[in-house]
């Protein structure tokens, strides 16, 4: 309603950018999910949990770096907007 002139389908580049944003939104959700996993493990030594958390952490950072590179681009007028 607010953007009546939005096209229904997008060019390939803008489409990619939109999905990149979706991925950026999804990343913290995935992070929460993975960080909750150790809670379900049987209590025991902390070593494996520590390693697991650090690995998840490193992966989150890595993915965020990749996504940030793509999201950094200035928005083209046609791709402007929130989704």
């Amino acid at each position: 309603m607010r953007r009546p002139r939005q096209p229904l389908f997008l060019a390939r580049a803008s489409y990619r950018r939109r999905r990149l944003r979706d991925a950026a939104r999804l990343l913290p959700v995935v992070g929460v999910f993975l960080l909750m996993l150790p809670l379900l493990w049987p209590q025991g030594g902390a070593g494996s949990a520590v390693i697991f958390v650090f690995v998840v952490w490193a992966l989150l950072i890595g993915f965020a770096a990749v996504l940030a590179h793509g999201l950094d681009q200035p928005e083209t007028p046609s791709a402007a907007g929130d989704d």
Binding site: A24, L27, P28, V29, G31, V32, L35, L60, I61, L71
Partner: peptide
């Protein structure tokens, strides 16, 4: 903070 920053788009 890691989750918040990784999810900066939100």
């Amino acid at each position: 903070p890691t989750l918040v920053f990784v999810g900066w788009w939100w």
